[in-house]
Each structure stands twice: as structure tokens, then as C-alpha cells.
Write a protein that binds this DNA or RNA. Structure first.
Length: 590
DNA sequence: GCCGTTTTCGGCCCGACTGTTTTCAGTCG
């Protein structure tokens, strides 16, 4: 049961979807959706919890806890099996067609017996949808178009870094319009999720019409989905959807809160507004109108021009965007115990990077050092691959030669160049070279690069063994996942995190947008356990150093503070940690 | 189905846009 929480979350999400299709009470549906989210974000593995401990998690009640226990003990949830038996599998698939929701799916099934996408296609061709209540020619047309595009790459989520580039481009263009006072991107992109489903753009302008027109007419746009007064949606040629909202400047803060989400976070703070006798929408935080008041009485806006105003008026600390996932941040903000999360400016160095001494490095050592220095870093560790990685690794002689190159560069650059290596964790937990040779390095990352599909116990034991080594300072990309390409290898993250605390080894937040490893959820577990993190670019080129922002955002999503991040320490503090790991019997790093 | 510093019962966030309708349902976020 490697991914218990994710498994359970999926079961609940499916229950919610099937209940919706059955036309069940919307609040019951939401309860299951909320339970799915709560389980997915839970800081501990559910397998180790009793039903009582589960209900302590917000969003898990007696009923859902019982179903979790049922799933953990029997591997199935009877309620879900019943639902599956009642709703043909294809009907759920129908709702994945854009513009086709549960009501229409149910109508198609009940009236025409349609329960697969193929049957819908045939029904459209045969013209048998005509005459159905509420389905006119236009809807028929839209469905035909949607079906035509199913299977096209439209629906794929894009990596966060690609989305940032696209969103920046669109914002730059809109910012040039004379009507636009402010423009930015919001949504899951601002929360810095790992992948992005659509781009949410927000602009402040007194006259929205020209701004809407500018997006509709942009050459990046493939087609227009929605063209309203306050909202425009388009699909970009790149295949991703972009939504634009334009508000008056006084509503900027409230609109930014609304448009940043997450949906669950918004619901949470809107409920809080209601309890305070207020109502929150994208135009502001308002006093609730007295129903007896004169119809022409102007509504009173309590807050709206900045996000901080809106949160303050709700009695909340301002919540950094990456934390807005309804994972306890609202409660923490209400109690004034929101963490001061790590920021890019807190990073004093980068502890994982490559030069072209590694076979896969794309820039010279000096170019990398210069680039790290230009970013204002105090230290940079060059951690080229070690000899066991036969394709890219450096022999001992290579490492000695590189050491001379570092010394020569060090004379000319103020930034401290740490002589490092990225070691390979062997199948038994051993690493490259020998102890004596390893103690000549200043800093070592150790990572798994081979044999990804070992059993969980073996894979975990392998990493734990490497953590015991006095020269291993951090475990690189601890789960080995590549986003959208391969899942992580099967390890017990909680055990790794516990060992990190015990051995004084850090765990990496690899900032490469294709890794983001640890993930935000795993970071949260590490933070809760008190493990030390590194936020490292794993740069293989000069440009890769810019990835640090994604590592920082991932650490923020896991509630990490500068105090829990090794490379937020000044150089002497960092070296103290390295020497502490080595223990008294071994050579010191100075 | 969940939840409570007004509540253990009766609430549960709020709005834009489209299409098919003469006042609103469905979908989406």
C-alpha cells in the first residue's frame, strides 16, 4: 500500500462523481469531494490511524472514516461498488466532454440509452438528439465540436514552467494596453501547482471591453470559448485554455483572492465571511444587505482593493498563494500561526548542480560559477556525477583535476565554490569511491539513479543505509519521479524523513520543473517530522538556475520555513551541519 | 455527509456565461 492516501482520495472522488450523476444531494456530494481532498492532503499515512484519529481530520466524519477503514481492511468500498453497478461506466466518461455535465449525461442515458462516447457520436450522426428537451441545434453543434477534439492534445495539463512562460507572454501584451492598470496571472499557476490545466489572467481596468478584445484577437489564440463582458475564455494554439477576468481597480484584491483559489480555499473563507455577517465575492467583502432596506441603498464594501485587506477584514493573516489548498491554512491564519514560509530571497546558496565535467552538464564550470554569483548566491556546490554512473560520472582522477580547476576559479570569484559530488546509491545502499576519498569533498548529494523497481522495503532500506554515511549530506530527488512521465519508486517517505532527522541528513526539494521532488505534500510530512530540507536547482545549464523559484514554491506548498532549509544558512552554518554529520572522527570541512 | 466561541439540527459560497427559454437550467470555475 504505497500510496494509501492517494488511493483513498481517488475512491472518494469517484463516489462524489457517481453521486452527482445519480442526482444525489449536492451537499452530500461536496462532503465526499471534501473528504477526498482532506485525505489526499493528510500529513500522515492513513493506514496507521484509527477511525477516531481519522475523524480528527477536518472533512472526515464518522461515515467517511468507516469507509476508509473498510477500504484499508478489505481493499474495497461496498458503497462505491454499488454505485458503479447502478451507473454505466460510460456515463461518467460522457461528463468529461466539455460542456456536457451530469444532468445532460443522465438525460442522454435515460431517454436514448446512451452510455458511451461512441454511442453519443452515433446518436449525433443519426440526428436522434433532436426533440430532447433543452437540447437545441446549437448544443448539438457544440457537442459535435467537443467530440471532434476529444483525443486531441487539448486536455493535457502543462508543466508549471511552460505555463509561466505562456502566462508572462500574455500578461506582457495586455499590460501594454492603455486601459490596463494592472495585470497578473492567478489560479493554480499562482499557487504553483506542479502542472497547470488552464491559465487564469486577471486585469484591472476601468473599461474592460478593449482588454477582452485584445485577448480574443491575439495571434496566440486558436479559438474563443466564452466572450462576455466580464470574462473571456479562449484556447491557445499551444492547446491550453486561458481565462481572463477584468475588474475595476477597487476590486483588485478581492478578485485576486477569488481567481487564485483554490476553490476549496475560497469556499472556506466565504463561509467565514458568512459567519461574520459578511459576504465575499470577486468584487469585494460586503456587509450583507438588510432585506428591509431601501432597494436603492448602496452596498457597503468592507474590503477589496488588496488581498491583505480582504484577509485582515476576515480576521486572517494574509495567506501566501501556494498554501491556499484548504489544508489547514485558514484555521492557522485565524489563530495567527501561519508559518513564515521560505522565499527565494532566503536562499543563500544552491547545493546541487552540474558542470560539463559531468557527461550531461551543458555549461563550463566557470560559466556556472559566474551565473550562480550573478544570482547573488553566497555559495554554490558543484555536484557532478560520481564514477558509478558510468555514462556521466567522473573518475577519481577527473575529480582531482576538477578540484584544481575549482581552486583556480576560487581565486577569482567571491562566491564560495563547494567541491561536491552527486553520489549513486547502489542497490545495497553503498555509494561511490571510498570513505577517505569522499571526505575530501565539501558536500555530497546521494541519489538513486538505477534499479527503480525494487520492492518497497528494499528501496527504502537502500536509501536509509546511504543516509548513515558520514559524507552523505542530502538525499537528491528522493522519490525519483518525473512529472507526467514516471511515478516515483516505491519508498516509505515517512521512514526516510524519520531517518533524516535521526542521522542529520537533509532531504532535497529538487527544483527542476520536471521533478519537484519532494512534492509539496511530502515536504509537509518532512516539515512536520522536523527534517532538514535543501532546495536545489539540480542545474545542468546556466538557465536551469532559474528553476530555484519552483523549488521554493514547492517548499512553500509544504509549509517550509527558512529555519528548516539547509541552504538558507550562511556558509559557516552550512559547514557546521556538514561537519556535525561527519562526527568527531573524520576530516572537517572549512 | 459534515459541522458548531450563536447551533448536535439546520444550515451548507458565489457569480459569469450560454442556450433555450420568456424567467431559468446547466455548466464551469
Amino acid at each position: 500500500m504505497a500510496w494509501t492516501n492517494e488511493d483513498v482520495a481517488r475512491q472518494f472522488a469517484e463516489i462524489a462523481a457517481l453521486l452527482t450523476l445519480r442526482g444525489e444531494d449536492a451537499f452530500r456530494v461536496r462532503a465526499y469531494e471534501r473528504a477526498a481532498a482532506a485525505v489526499g492532503a493528510a500529513p500522515r499515512d492513513l493506514a496507521g490511524l484509527s477511525a477516531d484519529e481519522m475523524t480528527a481530520i477536518k472533512g472526515i466524519g464518522a461515515s467517511t472514516a468507516k469507509r476508509i477503514v473498510e477500504y484499508l481492511t478489505t481493499g474495497r468500498i461496498a458503497m462505491l461498488e454499488d454505485l458503479r453497478a447502478q451507473v454505466p461506466a460510460g456515463v461518467l466518461e460522457l461528463t468529461r466532454i466539455p460542456g456536457l455535465g451530469p444532468k445532460t449525461a443522465l438525460l442522454l442515458h435515460d431517454q436514448l440509452g446512451i452510455s458511451t462516447v461512441e454511442e453519443l457520436r452515433a446518436a449525433l450522426d443519426a440526428g436522434s438528439l433532436r426533440g430532447l428537451k433543452g437540447l437545441g441545434a446549437k448544443t448539438e453543434d457544440n457537442l459535435r465540436q467537443s467530440l471532434g477534439r476529444m483525443g486531441a492534445k487539448d486536455t493535457d495539463r502543462v508543466p508549471v514552467a511552460d505555463a509561466v512562460a505562456l502566462a508572462d507572454e500574455l500578461c506582457d501584451r495586455l499590460a501594454r494596453l492603455p486601459q490596463v492598470r494592472r495585470v497578473t496571472w492567478a489560479g493554480s499557476l499562482r499557487r504553483m501547482r506542479e502542472t497547470i490545466g488552464d491559465l487564469d489572467l486577471l486585469a484591472a481596468a476601468d473599461d474592460p471591453a478593449p482588454v477582452m478584445a485584445a485577448l480574443r484577437d491575439a495571434d496566440l489564440v486558436d479559438r474563443i470559448l466564452v466572450a462576455g463582458e466580464k470574462k473571456t475564455s479562449v484556447v491557445l494554439r499551444r492547446g491550453i485554455q486561458a481565462d481572463l477576468r477584468v475588474v475595476e481597480p477597487d476590486a483588485w484584491g478581492a478578485a485576486l483572492v477569488y481567481f487564485t483559489g483554490s476553490k476549496a480555499h475560497n469556499i472556506r473563507i466565504r463561509e467565514r465571511a458568512v459567519r461574520k455577517g459578511l459576504t465575499l465575492n470577486e468584487y469585494g467583502l460586503w456587509e450583507v444587505q438588510d432585506p428591509d432596506a431601501a432597494a436603492e441603498a448602496a452596498p457597503v464594501r468592507v474590503a477589496g482593493s488588496t488581498e491583505a485587506d480582504v484577509y485582515a477584514a476576515l480576521g486572517l493573516q494574509p495567506v501566501p498563494a501556494p498554501l491556499r489548498e484548504d489544508a489547514g491554512e485558514v484555521e492557522a491564519a485565524a489563530e495567527g500561526r501561519l508559518p513564515a514560509v521560505v522565499t527565494l530571497a532566503d536562499l543563500r546558496g544552491d547545493l546541487h548542480g552540474h558542470s560539463d565535467w559531468s557527461g550531461d552538464g551543458k555549461a563550463s564550470l566557470e560559466d556556472m560559477v559566474a551565473a550562480a554569483a550573478a544570482r547573488g548566491l553566497e555559495y554554490w556546490a558543484v555536484t557532478d556525477h560520481a564514477e558509478d554512473l558510468t555514462i556521466n560520472g567522473l573518475t577519481r582522477d577527473d575529480m582531482r583535476a576538477r578540484r584544481r580547476a575549482i581552486a583556480e576559479l576560487q581565486d577569482r570569484y567571491a562566491i564560495r565554490i563547494l567541491d561536491g559530488a552527486e553520489l549513486n546509491i547502489g542497490v545495497g545502499g553503498g555509494v561511490d569511491y571510498d570513505l577517505d576519498f569522499l571526505l575530501d569533498f565539501d558536500f555530497c548529494v546521494a541519489s538513486v539513479h538505477t534499479l527503480f523497481n525494487r520492492p518497497r522495503e528494499e528501496q527504502t532500506a537502500r536509501i536509509l543505509a546511504a543516509m548513515e554515511h558520514p559524507a552523505v549530506n542530502v538525499i537528491g530527488h528522493p522519490t525519483g519521479r518525473k512529472i507526467g512521465r514516471r511515478p516515483g519508486y516505491d519508498i516509505d517517505v515517512d521512514a526516510v524523513v524519520a531517518a533524516a532527522v535521526r542521522t542529520g541528513t537533509a532531504v532535497e526539494v529538487n527544483a527542476s520543473p520536471q521533478r519537484l521532488d519532494l512534492s509539496g505534500d511530502h515536504v509537509r510530512r518532512a516539515v512536520d517530522a522536523g527534517a532538514l530540507l535543501t532546495i536545489s536547482s539540480d542545474a545542468h545549464s546556466v538557465g536551469d538556475l532559474a528553476s530555484l523559484r519552483y523549488g521554493v514554491a514547492t517548499a512553500q506548498r509544504g509549509w517550509a520555513t527558512p529555519g528548516g532549509v539547509l541552504n538558507c544558512l550562511p556558509l559557516d552554518g552550512l559547514l557546521e551541519v556538514v561537519n556535525a554529520k561527519r562526527g568527531p572522527g573524520h576530516r572537517r570541512v572549512t
